[in-house]
Design a protein around this nucleic acid. Sequence first.
DNA 1: TGGATACTAATGGTCTAACCATTATAATGA
DNA 2: TCATTATAATGGTTAGACCATTAGTATCCA
Lengths: 241, 241
Amino acid sequence: MFRAAKQSRIFQDIVDQIQEAILSGSVKSGEMLPAERELKEMFQTSRGTLREALRVLEQKGLIEIKLGVGGGAMIKSANTEQIRESLDILIRSQRVSLSHLCEFREGVEGDVVALAAQRATAADIQRLKELLKEAKKHAGKGASHRDAFLEADKKLHLAMAQISGNPIYISILKMVHNNINRYYDNFLHMGKRELMENYEDLSGMVQAIEKGDRDKSKSLAQSHIRRFSGYMKKEKQQVKD
Amino acid sequence: MFRAAKQSRIFQDIVDQIQEAILSGSVKSGEMLPAERELKEMFQTSRGTLREALRVLEQKGLIEIKLGVGGGAMIKSANTEQIRESLDILIRSQRVSLSHLCEFREGVEGDVVALAAQRATAADIQRLKELLKEAKKHAGKGASHRDAFLEADKKLHLAMAQISGNPIYISILKMVHNNINRYYDNFLHMGKRELMENYEDLSGMVQAIEKGDRDKSKSLAQSHIRRFSGYMKKEKQQVKD
DNA sequence: TGGATACTAATGGTCTAACCATTATAATGA
DNA sequence: TCATTATAATGGTTAGACCATTAGTATCCA
């Protein structure tokens, strides 16, 4: 299954081999790796070194380790958790600012919505309208339902990514929306008026998508995101005062 | 400096403590952590467990470990390497298709070049022109210099991301260009004519950036990428025959 | 004097062998 | 039949030793 390990850092070689096996598909998501005491024999190494390799693979999000009988390292299907964590660290170490994130979002979400406008089926439109209804319900109840509204807003944006059909956009939008939450708690205070403004944005976007109007849906998405960013920047300003 | 470790997974507790110390700024970039044998005492743990924690921190990109006397764990300044690696894994494991990647590239690189057109300084333009000169040199030599031309092309695209100033775009473009190579080897056969066509694209883009023409630079970037994708799709077709 | 060489010690990398903690399954018993 | 207990597989941890790399220091020789 695996060859004996080489290199100056043995655990790195083990990481490389197992990662390659996972990414090439020779071991599949959901399957278990052999137990540590077996892997140790396969790689002709010690348990400590092997475990260092498993720590790295775990941190990369490629495996998940369970305790007890029948436990061990299970191959995980790739997800956006590690990206989110990396972005967390970048944001916390001030390498990525709120305005960077907003600027990026404006570009990417504009593109996503334009694709969605080209590709949405009748069923897709139906789904968007349901989500829209949910958003409207929360927006009507004012500030106390802000979080519920934001959740619906997030679902709408992710639904549009799904409609675009491009897995890269889907992953990246998930990553962005998981991280933007961090700013909400600190900076974003929205009352009923702001919630309704946003609902109208979303509603307009869905209409444009239904008509298949690429350009209009795109520019609406971008102004929607700019409006959002605006709330946060204004609020950030106030915090400084 | 650190308190003794708790929790079911001791190494995780150690990771959390050191990560917090780094991100809160109580240990700064460039500084060294104590040696393993000292850290082990601080955390009241064994060297094996401590080293598992160090592997995780290393994988997160928070520390870098050097060998020998005066070696040890140095605090790294946060960078986008980990996020790029996570995206790589995501793309590889989802078997993202060539057309997905090209579509994504068309959207993102269009946005990047538009930002570059707004923000390029005289020095930036100078740098772009140098890279352009390099590209021209290789393009003129025809198919045998394809790889050298593509390298120059890549440098130009990444330079534009740098000019945009947005670290998210920078890391994402790095990710894209690292992954697109995977497809070149299989599908992309370019002769002198194609190389020169591409050079003309790039040259037009740099001119538009110099003029600060957002829209023109964007649409040139997009048609450039579409042309590229076209080569690959055509080639893919031929392979099937 | 000065440069090359050899030694020394600090530090990460690896190994062995044992024990602890958790948990699914099997055996046991009311 | 169902609850309880025992068993064994598996990851988590520990201790102590030795190896490999490397910077600094001492030594030697020209």
